[in-house]
Each structure stands twice: as structure tokens, then as C-alpha cells.
Design a binder for these strands. Structure first.
Lengths: 340, 340
DNA sequence: CTAACTGACCAAAACGTTTTGGTCCAACTC
DNA sequence: GAGTTGGACCAAAACGTTTTGGTCAGTTAG
């Protein structure tokens, strides 16, 4: 206990001395690089384990420009002034799964905020690669990283950057949602989208409009700020009620919180779900699972997306440029809000 | 666009050349270290911004043994089998809040797995400090880090390591829970605890028993495996019903999932909550928020704990050894399950 | 007038690796 | 037997900083 309390980690020099070779030989042995005689190799290995040597990641990073850490930028979280993820479990699940997957593949994962801002930690620029979840239009983070030559992979596309291809897509077949409610007897379906300028909103709206055209429906689209949460859903419901005409047979809200608020408000106005109006959410969350009745939702499978994004990025980092961008299959979870 | 696509980041040498000084002077200027003439200082600053220079965190880390990154080890997550994120949002919120707080203070935060295992990323050993959330008894991670001399801070104590003091506590004043239900008219209160041998269960039980003694109640304690979830709560409710005697006026379940299952079962048996029996949870969660009626719970404030842990660790890192371990005040969130 | 100090600056060492460009010797090739 | 090959190893450079230990004027103290 009293002996040199702060004991230096053994370095490659210590191993070299112990094995009676040069540090070059140690490095080559441990990295399977050069040609080293089998006996020597063994001697070095023994010395290394004996001393409890493990290479210093920083020194290695300096020399070989490879830190072993990935950066994760969750774009919607850059905006939130007060970080209140309560009920927004998509990103937390994504981050957790990404961290675990990175760890399983021998990398660390660092959550960083927009590294293009000056107060971002310096280390961000030294990371091996980045995952950008839900990039905004013409995302400056993508621009910065491209300029630096840092490999990156997005989850969801940058709608203003069509030439950028390295993004993990989800199957987002709104078709399965719409055909499900049709099967259950709904004819007119309204869409409630968010206001962020991202692919999620844009693509869902355009696919919805196409579906409406094809099935001879009038498209009904409401836009409401994602951050408004359940209150926002309530307000949309009130617009629908005030509109005077008949309610649509089903309402498809892209966020779970809008869906929950909207459903509750419609019920309060005397409409029964799912008999008079069905409700579907485009993103499963705490609110959809726990509403009464529980709300049918699309499970975006954050764990699968995270895994795919990490794998895709690492493939790039480790040289196999060839892999195509992965597509994660969404899954429709049918619940009481749409089953008559 | 066609010009040298991969352009090297400017180094301290480039700045020195541009300003016509030595790299020493640049370093001193940028770190406010040595004595540099005001004019020179300005010239260096200008050159640095002109070139868009920012120091390489890795090189700096190598030289000064300070990476600017904190490690976060969430112990329950090391055990992947029991990693059930759905409905367990405490740790994800904790991790997110810790990352944001670290970023706000100029550090990065890396989520790592048990760094004492051989497959952990090397970089883990180079981090500046660690936060260990919910250490296990005699935690080997704490042992390893202490051996390496790496500063660390825990959230929750290591029950087998009484001499270890650097942990963030929560106020866990079960008293406020009990006096709240008393104010609402409850006289007899039962406790439902978990079976894990940790401080959380042990401390709550002993405080509950003391309260029972002081208010002349018979202590009623049920133990149920934490992992049994809502089903476990249901089973506890059934034991209560089968017992034959009158139900307690209130039931305090330490986990939110037990509380939700128990409440639902009691309601199904015809008891009204809160009029005939109140339900309280010791840990707020998705289930407590979304039960009908919503269940009064103790909010463990993961955001506040994370902030406290980061602050505590940084105080240690930056030299002010003096600070006492912080205590995070829990907050009782009163909901329908206890308001008559 | 000399010694000591101070302000302004710099060259070089150090941090712990990986990689480059060797040397040396034994074993082949012609 | 001269030339070539290749196995086994190593010294030194390089990565981009921070820090140490200077030098060199100019100024002040004795």
C-alpha cells in the first residue's frame, strides 16, 4: 500500500527490455506485422502478459491516426435547450444500442454535440468516424466532417444533399400502415406530421399524398411542431373538431406523443377509438404503449438501426468500401386503437 | 474541389511559421502559460484563427496525460442479458444527461463496458476519470481504477466497501412518502421491496421499519424479484387478497413495475384506488406515469444525479479535493393514486 | 563597472507508439 | 565463388503537442 502509490503503466520499452529485444520487435509481435521468429514471438508475448502490458491508445492514436472511438451526433438533441428526453425513448434506445454495439466491436462510442460549434470538445475532431442521427437539411455537421475527411454515416437522409448516399434507411413503408387501417375499414385517413425539415417528415408526407391520389382520397395533412408533444396532438384534434365536417376514419400521427394527445382529446369529445376513429403512430413510444386503448404504431427498431449504422460505419473505416447502405425493416405493432 | 482533396489539419508548426515565431511561443500564447509580448501574442492569435487551427487533442493527451474525456460505466448494462431498455428509462436518461453535462463543461463522455475485461477498448484506460453508476458489491471496476490511480465517482454506494466515500447519494427519504400518504388519510402502509442485495432495498426496508416502530404500526414487508415486473406486482396483490384480513390503506412498492401490476390487480378485485387503497412507487417510470390512475412516485432525478456526478468528478480532476459528496434530492411526484 | 535579474523568445526533449529503412548473416542460384 | 534472396532483428524517424532548460538583450541593484 505504501509502496510507490502511483505506478506507471508498463510501456512497450519495458516489455522490450524484459524480453531482450527491441521495441520494434515487440510492436511487430503484438500487431502481427513483421517477421519475428516463433520463439522470440513467444518470449515477447510472455513478457507482455507478465508485465500486464497494454498499448497506450493515445500514443497509438497519435502515430496511426486511429483512436478507436466513434462519435454519435443526435441532431434533434442539439436543439433541445433543456434536455428532457422523458417519453422520447427512441433516441435513448438508439444511443444505448449503438454504444453496446460499438463496444462489442472493440470501439468506444462518444456522444457529442454538433462538432461544428466552437465549444465542442477538441477530441471530437480526432474521432475515427461519426454517426449522425436524423441529419437536418444541408446539415453543417456533414459538411464539416466531409471537409475534414472524417468518415461518417447518417441515419435518415439529408433531404438537401441527394448526392450523399451513406445513410441507413428504414423501410418506412407507410403503405403497410395505410393498408392496415383500410383493412380494418377506414376509408379517409388524415396525416399529422412534424415541422422539422428532415427526411422523416418529407418522405412520409409525399408517400401519403401519393397513396391518397391512388386511392382517390383528398389528402388531409396537419403540421405540428414535434416539440409540442401531447399538447400539440390535442390542438390538432381541436382543429379537426372545429372544422365542422366529419372526422376522418383514421388519423396517422408521425410522433407517438401527438398520437396520444390527439386520441385522448377525440375521446373526450365523445368519439370512440377505434370504432369511430382509428389512431396510428409512426413512431412507437411510451405514450403509444400506455394510452387507452394502446395505439397501433410503427416500431422504428432503434436497436436494429443503431446496429446497422455502427456496422456500416465500421465497414467503411476498415476498408471494405463496397457494402451498400443497409435498410432496416420497420415493424407495424397492431394494438387496440385500430382493431375493431 | 479538385485541389488536394484530403487537406491536412493545420498544426502548431503552421501557426508558428505564419506568425514568425517558435512553436513554444504559440503554445504559450494559446495556453496562457509563459511570458509573451502583447504584440506577439496578438500576431499568434490572428495566425491561429486565420488558419483555423485547433490543437490536436490526441497529441495533447499524449504529452499531458489528459484526454478531456470521461468514462461512464453503467453496471447493470454490463450484464447484457438483463438489458431490457423498454420501460427502464432511468439509465438512458442518466447517460444522456451525463453526456450533455460533460459537454457543457468541455469534456467528452464515453460509455464503456467494464474496463477490467480484456476486450474492453484500450482507450478506456486513458480516460481522465470515471463515473460508475450503480456499482455492484465489491465492484472490481472500482478496484481496477483505484489500482491505476484513475479518479472515479460512483452513483450509489458499494455496499461491501464502506471506506469508499466518493459516491453521489440520493436523499431517499422514505419519510416524505410515508408522511404524504398519512396526510391523505392512510394509517397502515405495506412495503414491497425487491430481492437484490443492494443498498436501495436494504436502506428502504430499515427506514420503513423504523417509521413503523415510531408510528406504532405493524411492519408489513413483501419481497419480490425486481425482474418479475408487473406480473410480480400482481402476485403480491394476490397474496394480499388471499391473506384474508383487511388491505393496508396504502402500499409502497419500490419499483414502478411492481406498483403498476399491483394496482391493476387490486382494482380488478374491486378495490378503488386511491379511495380504498393508495399505491406509491419508489422509482418513477413509464408504468407509473401511465397507469390509471397515474401512480404517485419518487422521481430519482437521473438528470440531477448525472449532473452532480459529473460535477463531483470534475472537481476531483481539476484539483479541488475538498468538496463533499453531493446528495441529490428526490422529489415526490404526487399523482392520482394517492389523492383522495 | 559588475552582478544579478527580468522579459522575450527559442531549441530540443519528452510522451508511447508505429513505420521506415536499414544491417547482418545464412542459405540459396548460377 | 560472386551475387542474390530472405529471415531476423534493430535504430531512428515520425506523429503534434507541452515543458524544460536554455540564450540573449536590456535593465536594475550594489
Amino acid at each position: 500500500m505504501s509502496s510507490s502509490q502511483i505506478r506507471r503503466r508498463p510501456t512497450i520499452h519495458d516489455v522490450a527490455r524484459a524480453a531482450g529485444v527491441s521495441i520494434t520487435t515487440v510492436s511487430h509481435t503484438l500487431n502481427d506485422k513483421g517477421v519475428v521468429a516463433t520463439a522470440t514471438r513467444q518470449r515477447v508475448r510472455d513478457a507482455a502478459t507478465e508485465l500486464g502490458y497494454s498499448p497506450d491508445a493515445i500514443a497509438r492514436g497519435l502515430r496511426s491516426n486511429r483512436l478507436g472511438v466513434l462519435g454519435l451526433v443526435i441532431r434533434p438533441l442539439d436543439d433541445l435547450d433543456s434536455y428532457q428526453p422523458e417519453g422520447v425513448d427512441y433516441f435513448m434506445r438508439f444511443a444505448g444500442a449503438a454504444a453496446v454495439e460499438a463496444l462489442d466491436r472493440g470501439y468506444g462510442l462518444m456522444l457529442v454535440r454538433d462538432p461544428s460549434t466552437p465549444d465542442a470538445p477538441q477530441i471530437a475532431l480526432a474521432l475515427d468516424g461519426f454517426i449522425i442521427a436524423d441529419p437536418v437539411a444541408s446539415d453543417p455537421v456533414i459538411a464539416l466532417l466531409n471537409r475534414l475527411g472524417t468518415p461518417l454515416v447518417a441515419v435518415g437522409r439529408d433531404i438537401e444533399r441527394p448526392e450523399f448516399r451513406d445513410w441507413v434507411a428504414d423501410s418506412h413503408d407507410i403503405g403497410s400502415v395505410l393498408s392496415h387501417v383500410q383493412e380494418q375499414g377506414a376509408e379517409t385517413v388524415a396525416l399529422v406530421r412534424g415541422t422539422d425539415a428532415n427526411a422523416w417528415n418529407a418522405d412520409n408526407e409525399s408517400e401519403y399524398r401519393q397513396w391518397a391520389r391512388e386511392s382517390n382520397q383528398t389528402a388531409i395533412v396537419y403540421s405540428k411542431d414535434e416539440r409540442s408533444g401531447e399538447a400539440g396532438g390535442r390542438e390538432v384534434a381541436e382543429s379537426m373538431l372545429n372544422f365542422g365536417g366529419p372526422l376522418p376514419d383514421a388519423v396517422y400521427c408521425l410522433t407517438g406523443r401527438h398520437a396520444a394527445g390527439l386520441q385522448r382529446r377525440l375521446q373526450k369529445a365523445g368519439f370512440s377509438v377505434p370504432d369511430q376513429v382509428m389512431v396510428v403512430a409512426g413512431s412507437d413510444s411510451e405514450q403509444t404503449r400506455n394510452s387507452t386503448p394502446p395505439i397501433t404504431s410503427v416500431d422504428l427498431q432503434p436497436e436494429a438501426s443503431a446496429k446497422a449504422a455502427v456496422g456500416f460505419l465500421l465497414a467503411r473505416l476498415e476498408g471494405n468500401e463496397n457494402g451498400p447502405a443497409p435498410i432496416v425493416e420497420n415493424k407495424l405493432i397492431v394494438r387496440g386503437s385500430t382493431t375493431r
